[in-house]
């Protein structure tokens, strides 16, 4: 607990998340835990080992930069691909450092690590077992989360960018290799017998968002020779595709999507703005919810389940501090925050 004092000493101020109306500034309350707020992961510049984690407390209008480095007095590593929270622990997946760091969720104090991994992408934990995806390996690694040791693997036959466990099934999104075989399926592993099945989607599945009611929304970027990007809604219970919507965007367009559980909608950034897709509709919203003129390189997108605020991570040029822009659920600009390099994910608690 003594490390709590360290990060308190690193307060750098607070931002105004309210409107432009002039108000008397209030003294910020101290942040003594990282449990209630927004965790912002910044993956850092490839090869430079400067991944950082920021904590934002919207209620106190305060943030704490570089919480992992401050608490542990060492950098987290190279390319923070994702963070998973489970049983009061945070698991930082350090892609180019080949390890997953275990830290307490409340203080971000390091308590262990799983090492010797090949470009891990994401970990999902169920019943004490950690299922680890990899950017290059065709296996899903299985780790015992008590001992933090890899003790099994499941052959998938594809690399795995995103993984998600639901009802004893492990869902895997495997992106196509550049100009390699075009993938147009997502995969599902039965965790009882390790059999692999797949569900047909559009060309080049790129990202997904997990909705309520057993729905998985998969963004496929299509291709430059005619296939438009599309959204595929998949029922993970059945499992089957329940809806497919083509998007009016150039084929091959790369983006990230997010699910807004308060509004029950999927947010889809396209070239000129972020659009909303309401499950069941045959098309996305006709006008952009958020204009992206001020965003250089959208790299992260998240929606707060508490207040519906929309968080956009702008990676700029990946060699300078990134910016997190915050919008209300109706798309009005609310504030911005300078963070580390490559803000890629938001985690709300």
């Amino acid at each position: 607990m003594k490390n709590l004092f360290l990060f308190i000493a690193f307060f750098t101020g607070f931002i105004f998340l309210s409107s432009c109306e002039k108000e008397e500034p209030e003294q910020p309350d101290q942040i003594d835990s990282f449990e209630d707020g927004v965790i912002i992961s910044c993956e850092g510049a490839f090869g430079q080992g400067n991944a950082v984690v920021y904590f934002l407390d919207p209620a106190k209008q305060a943030y704490v930069p570089e919480i992992y480095r401050t608490v542990n007095q060492e950098p987290a590593g190279d390319v923070l691909q994702s963070i998973t929270f489970e049983n009061d622990n945070a698991y930082l997946v350090m892609n180019n450092s080949g390890q997953i760091i275990q830290a307490t969720e409340k203080t971000f104090e390091k308590t262990g690590s799983i090492e010797g991994l090949s470009a891990p992408t994401e970990i999902d934990i169920e019943d004490g077992q950690g299922y680890i995806g990899s950017l290059y390996s065709q296996h899903i690694l299985v780790a015992d989360m008590n001992s933090l040791q890899v003790n099994d693997s499941i052959f998938l036959g594809e690399q795995s960018n995103r993984i998600f466990e639901d009802d004893n099934r492990l869902w895997i999104l495997s992106q196509s290799d550049y100009q390699g075989r075009v993938k147009d399926h997502i995969y599902v592993i039965n965790l009882t017998d390790h059999s692999v099945d797949s569900v047909k989607v559009g060309s080049h599945p790129t990202d997904w968002a997990i909705g309520d009611n057993d729905e998985l929304y998969v963004y496929c970027r299509g291709n430059e020779t005619g296939e438009s990007p599309s959204i595929h809604a998949i029922n993970t219970e059945s499992p089957s595709t329940t809806q497919q919507v083509e998007l009016a965007a150039p084929g091959g367009f790369f983006t990230k999507i997010a699910y807004d559980e308060r509004e029950n909608r999927v947010l889809i950034p396209l070239e000129d703005g972020i659009y909303a897709y309401q499950p069941g509709d045959n098309s996305i919203s006709s006008t952009a919810l958020i204009n992206l003129d001020q965003i250089t390189a959208l790299y992260g997108l998240g929606v707060s389940p508490d207040d519906g605020d929309i968080y956009v991570g702008d990676a700029k040029d990946f060699n300078s501090a990134g910016v997190v822009a915050i919008y209300t659920s109706t798309g009005e600009a609310k504030g911005a925050l300078q963070v580390g390099i490559g803000p890629n994910n938001f985690y709300f608690d």
Binding site: G47, G77, M94, N96, G98, S113
Partner: peptide, 11 residues
């Protein structure tokens, strides 16, 4: 030549 790990790589 072998490429050594950086300070943030396990190996």
């Amino acid at each position: 030549r072998e490429i050594p790990p950086t300070l943030t790589e396990a190996r």
